[in-house]
């Protein structure tokens, strides 16, 4: 009997060991295309950049557009193009991390390829996963794509500024998320108004202190 993802999982375990040895925390940030992952990162980095040393790894199908946006915030960024691949995997992360001075880092944030299915299945060796679900995607997504919400330690319900213009039911989304994953941390955020971002950043900082 063999694990179909065994090869990936073995390298993920190696990554995890290396990250722990160097005391760097790694977050795997997932979510649909357009949910606001890159915008959230820009906002998060603006609040963090002078406090902690961060590197962002940007997973993208073909372009470097997101990486260019992150670069503007003055944070080092590494681009991985998956050339159509729908997710990042552990060997990709291992390869780019080999060129990093991990001892000098506090946090690595990986923006995964926009997709609610595949990234959830591939362990990168991260300390924890977080998923961004935007209000415009609909409140039925947690039960439609349960795995990604089950795997994530935190979910950001982003674009809450758009709540008045949609039929998104916050209470029902919160309820589905909690029954699926009773310990999940739920953040309600807006990257346009800034709502909820301080709470999110405080939680992230705590994750760093706990290491």
């Amino acid at each position: 009997m063999r694990n179909i993802l065994g090869a990936n999982d073995d390298i993920a375990a190696q990554n995890r060991k290396v990250f722990a040895e160097h005391g760097v925390i790694v977050m795997n940030l997932m979510g649909s295309p357009g949910s606001g992952k890159t915008t959230l990162l820009e906002q998060t980095l603006a609040r963090f950049a002078d406090k902690i040393k961060i590197v962002v790894i940007e997973g993208d199908l073909f372009t470097a557009k997101d990486a260019e946006r992150i670069e503007k915030s003055g944070v080092d960024v590494i681009q991985i193009n998956t050339a159509g691949g729908c997710h990042l995997d552990a060997p990709m992360i291992q390869k780019v991390c080999a060129s990093l001075d991990l001892d000098a880092l506090d946090l690595i944030i990986v923006e995964n390829v926009g997709n609610l299915v595949c990234p959830a299945e591939f362990d990168l060796g991260e300390n924890f996963k977080a998923v961004v679900l935007s209000i415009t995607e609909g409140d039925d997504k947690p039960l439609k794509y349960p795995l990604i919400f089950k795997e994530s330690e935190a979910v950001l319900l982003n674009k809450v500024d758009l709540l008045p213009f949609t039929n998104f039911n916050l209470e029902s989304a919160r309820n589905d998320l909690t029954t699926l994953h009773p310990t999940i941390k739920i953040f309600e955020t807006s990257c346009t108004t800034g709502a909820g971002l301080e709470t999110w950043c405080a939680w992230l900082l705590k994750k760093l202190e706990a290491r």
């Binding site: 063999r2 694990n3 089950k150 029954t179």
Partner: peptide
């Protein structure tokens, strides 16, 4: 239905099976 609250007490259910991706033979 992905309800991870215990139907019989106030505990939380921990996944035991359902995540398998195996080549069996």
């Amino acid at each position: 239905r992905y309800n991870f609250f215990c139907p019989e007490c106030d505990g939380i259910l921990i996944l035991r099976s359902g995540r398998e991706l195996l080549v069996e033979f």
